[in-house]
Design a protein around this nucleic acid. Structure first.
Length: 267
DNA sequence: ATGTCAGCCGGAGGCTGA
């Protein structure tokens, strides 16, 4: 089962790029972030015509996540638990950043958790506190998932650069929310619950990134960062056979600033 | 210091978010 994650930065602007990629990459399951669309405006038909089941969790203008799957999607949950009082303004968190469902594959079922973690900039602002609260909620939820024997994975745009080797110019990110010690500590605590960073399990390369800023010619200079991650539960990590980044997508017409990352698991 | 996109509102271009 090939499972991909792709921050598309707006479905309206990215529909041709995404459908072209789906035809070539042929993933069984796709986790989309930043659909920037309400559920009722998401273009389901192009994906359904390609054989995908579609589940969205969107909102107006910003954020928004979705799942595409050629296998049935069951027990869909939208939003992380503990939304009460954890929003960026101290109210309830109503930002559409999380979707979870069980994909019933040919060999076995896998719980797929798709996320778009808050950016958190600027540091010191309520946005950074919101990011850290969100990571605390994610930690608690993964602890709950860990009590299950069923394989699961948590994937998407984490907006965290885990290590210095995950940035072409780490010094440029020193004051950024994506590289703050608090953000990296929270990410490491999550991994230390027993999750496997699928890309790092397969490659120690230091020049492999998933995001290049639209500004300052970042792509042309390979000034990228690795912030889109697949974290696998122990039972899921046992099934891992491959993990790769579709870097060439960044060189195409009207690209997203992120590129797809995918895993192959024996499920 | 700055460089770019996308979506929204509203009917241009300014604002927000990244």
């Amino acid at each position: 089962m090939k499972i991909a994650s792709y921050n598309i930065n707006g479905i309206k602007a990215r529909l041709p790029a995404v459908t072209d990629w789906l035809k070539e990459a042929e993933p069984d399951v796709v986790i989309l972030q930043e659909i920037k669309s309400m559920d009722e405006n998401f273009p389901r038909e192009p994906f359904e015509d390609m054989g995908y089941n579609v589940e969205t969790h969107g909102q107006k203008s910003f954020n928004g996540v979705a799942l595409l799957s050629k296998f049935p999607l069951e027990d869909v949950v939208r939003g992380l638990p503990e939304a009460e009082g954890t929003g960026r303004d101290g109210g309830d968190d109503e930002e559409a950043r999380y979707i979870e469902a069980t994909v019933v594959g040919d060999l076995q079922a896998v719980r797929i958790c798709g996320l778009y973690l808050p950016n958190g900039n600027p540091v010191g602002d309520e946005k950074f506190a919101y990011k850290l609260r969100w990571m605390t909620r994610l930690q608690a939820h993964v602890e709950t998932l860990m009590t299950s024997e069923d394989p699961f994975l948590v994937a998407g745009d984490y907006n965290v650069i885990p290590q210095v080797e995950d940035a072409a110019r780490p010094e440029a990110w020193r004051d950024d929310a994506l590289f703050q010690p608090e953000s990296r500590d929270a990410f490491r605590r999550l991994v230390n619950l027993g999750l496997t960073d699928a890309f790092r399990a397969r490659s120690q390369a230091t020049d492999q990134y998933t995001f290049w800023d639209f500004q300052r010619g970042a792509w042309q200079r390979n000034d990228g960062i690795r912030i889109d991650h697949f974290l696998l539960s122990p039972q899921c990590a046992d099934l891992l056979t491959d993990c790769q980044i579709d870097k060439e997508m960044r060189a195409r017409e009207k690209p997203s600033d992120h590129v797809p990352i995918w895993v192959n698991i024996a499920a």
